[in-house]
């Protein structure tokens, strides 16, 4: 094995990981080295490999080439339970038909720390209480999961992830289908947590607002990496998403504005294409709340 020289092996990192399933390459030699405590945004269109990368980082999929390590040890040698005590994941969709209270859902996060048949210890209960407080769900703890709104469900899943007491938190498009207020609340919450977070995001402006660094994936490969100002350039966005944009450098983060195809500067779109309305919320959230 010839790994590149590293300053530290601490934390979770992906080293040139690839994954192909059934002859289709989902991920192609991607390296991701989050620094402790930072928030990394994964960008890229649907099918670019964001979810696959998160699954590899969580260890629920194994790479066909390359390696994911936790504190220097390959994930498959760390053991599933030990990984789950360090790395927590919030999936894009959380569905259950089981009748659970919010507290039950959050308590699921203690499973990697517990032995079967033994009841929750005071430590477990304290971790659940802290997670509920941190996510502002204390009042709703005894409410049924099925009565929660979409935003509250995501918050409950984040509380569950926090109950795992992770060092690394992986989130797969956690703001999908949420009202804008909940999107902002949720990202505000996540970036305020004392964890290293890797978040797959759809919305470029939210990524610019909340992430310390961005990694852009296209067709399974990483095409750009850096701070939001370094990464979010009109040329890159056009190349990756195929849409014309205007980027305004803001005071602390760049602002991306999508342009109507018809009003795009000449040469950027094909002449035969009919003008159409942008399907992404252009500059939907330009200001931080509060």
């Amino acid at each position: 094995m010839n790994h590149p020289v590293r300053t530290s092996e601490e934390g979770l990192r992906a080293d040139r990981v690839s994954l192909g399933i059934g002859g289709r390459i989902l991920l192609d030699g991607v390296t991701l080295v989050p620094r402790p405590g930072e928030t990394i945004g994964l960008l890229g269109p649907n099918g670019s490999g964001k979810s696959t990368l998160l699954r590899l980082l969580a260890g629920v999929l194994g790479p066909s080439a390359g390696v994911v390590t936790l504190d220097g040890s390959p994930l498959n040698r760390v053991g599933r339970r030990a990984v789950a005590r360090r790395v927590a994941t919030v999936q894009q969709h959380a569905h259950t038909q089981t009748e659970l209270t919010v507290r039950d859902v959050v308590a699921l996060g203690r499973i990697p720390h517990r032995r079967s048949w033994s009841p929750m210890t005071p430590d477990d209960l304290a971790a659940v209480t802290r997670a509920l407080e941190r996510t502002g769900l204390t009042d709703r703890a005894d409410q049924s999961w099925h009565t929660l709104s979409g935003g509250e469900r995501q918050r409950a899943q984040i509380a569950r992830a926090l109950a795992q007491e992770p060092g690394e938190l992986l989130l797969d498009e956690p703001t999908n289908h949420l009202d804008i207020q909940y999107q902002l609340d949720l990202l505000e919450l996540v970036t305020g947590l004392p964890v290293t977070a890797v978040i797959a995001l759809h919305d470029l402006n939210l990524a610019a607002m909340y992430c310390d660094r961005l990694v852009v994936l296209k067709d399974g490969g990483a095409v750009a990496e850096g701070t939001p100002s370094q990464v979010l350039t009109p040329a890159l966005i056009e190349d990756v998403y195929g849409v014309p944009v205007e980027v305004t450098p803001g005071s602390d983060h760049p602002v991306v504005r999508f342009l109507r195809r018809g009003s795009a500067p000449p040469g950027r779109t094909g002449p035969d294409r009919p003008p159409r309305a942008p399907d992404l919320p252009a500059g939907a959230a330009q200001e931080r709340p509060g």
Partner: peptide, 19 residues
């Protein structure tokens, strides 16, 4: 029993909880 609890949100969620 805790393994069975972990399946509440599906197999991938269970895997993410260390099962």
């Amino acid at each position: 029993t805790t393994t069975l609890d972990a399946f509440a949100f599906g197999e991938e969620a269970a895997a993410n909880l260390g099962v």
